[in-house]
């Protein structure tokens, strides 16, 4: 950038090393997934995706995300609102607890629900008597996914809303706006890009979660298998093209999420 020849050489060396690390360590695995999926051409890969069990897993994944993302969005918004707009005892603790699921193993995130609702869980026998099934069924998948995607929305909103402060809402109040008017017309437009970015990350994790749902799923093909679980089953059955085809579809989701996040961050500096 500036300085003599040696500093330019150093810059180029570092840049080259960085590119090498990223390409070899992060880029190559992605490429490997696509290559393995298309090893026998596009036909078999597409056929694997059109398989009824694969389609069922895609439908289930979408359903789980469609339930968990809105729940965690509403919860995250409420938490961000009370944490950034009010002072109250226990505020710092609430902030720390919201982050907690990030430092818990995904397997534990699934385990806790089995401990509560599994057949030998606290509420398991009670549920069984009434013919209600949570673990090894859709509710279990939803709960485990809720746990692992819990912090995403709150975590993207809180720093931004903290920084923006409450003056815009105060101004709206002096102009006669009600709480909801202020929320929908002033707060929401100000945080929309960050909110969208948080929702996208939450969604990506919800669709891609493996460890937590693996514990609560029971792996019933066509019923409780999400896409990541379906990948595992296919892989263990040596159906590599199918496994990598589904994996490629999920990788595509990750790429779209990253691209969207990049665009959103460029837009008004994340605001």
């Amino acid at each position: 950038m500036h300085g003599g020849r040696s500093s330019l050489a150093g810059t180029l060396l570092l840049r080259g090393l960085a590119v090498l690390v990223l390409v070899l360590f992060l880029g190559l695995p992605l490429l490997a997934v696509l290559a393995e999926a298309l090893r026998r051409g596009a036909g078999p890969a597409l056929a694997a995706l059109a398989d009824p069990d694969a389609l069922a897993s895609i439908r289930l994944t979408l359903l789980v995300a469609a339930i968990t993302v809105p729940v965690n969005t509403v919860g995250g918004l409420a938490a961000a609102w009370c944490i950034t707009r009010f002072r109250f005892p226990g505020r710092a603790l609430l902030l720390a607890l919201i982050e907690l699921p990030f430092s818990v193993s995904p397997v534990i995130s699934g385990l806790v629900w089995v401990l509560l609702f599994g057949s030998a869980g606290w509420f398991g026998p009670w549920l069984e008597e009434r013919g209600l099934q949570i673990v090894f069924a859709l509710p279990g998948l939803v709960l485990a996914t809720l746990f692992v995607t819990f912090p995403f929305v709150a975590r993207t909103l809180i720093p931004l809303m903290q920084e923006q402060g409450a003056t815009a809402e105060e101004a709206a109040a002096t102009l006669g706006a009600s709480g909801w008017q202020s929320f929908f017309r002033v707060t929401l437009p100000q945080i929309r890009w960050a909110l969208l970015s948080g929702v996208l990350l939450c969604n990506a994790r919800a669709m891609g979660e493996f460890g937590a749902v693996s514990v609560v799923s029971g792996h019933i093909r066509g019923e409780t298998n999400t896409m990541p679980l379906h990948i595992e089953i296919l892989y263990n059955e040596y159906q590599f093209v199918g496994a990598f085809a589904v994996a490629a579809l999920l990788a595509l989701l990750a790429l779209v999420t990253l691209a969207a996040k990049m665009v959103l961050e460029r837009r008004g500096g994340g605001a």
């Binding site: 815009a168 105060e170 101004a171 437009p189 605001a271």
Partner: peptide, 9 residues
């Protein structure tokens, strides 16, 4: 308001 608090959007 001191820094006007105009609605930026």
């Amino acid at each position: 308001f001191q820094n006007y608090a105009l609605f930026r959007h």
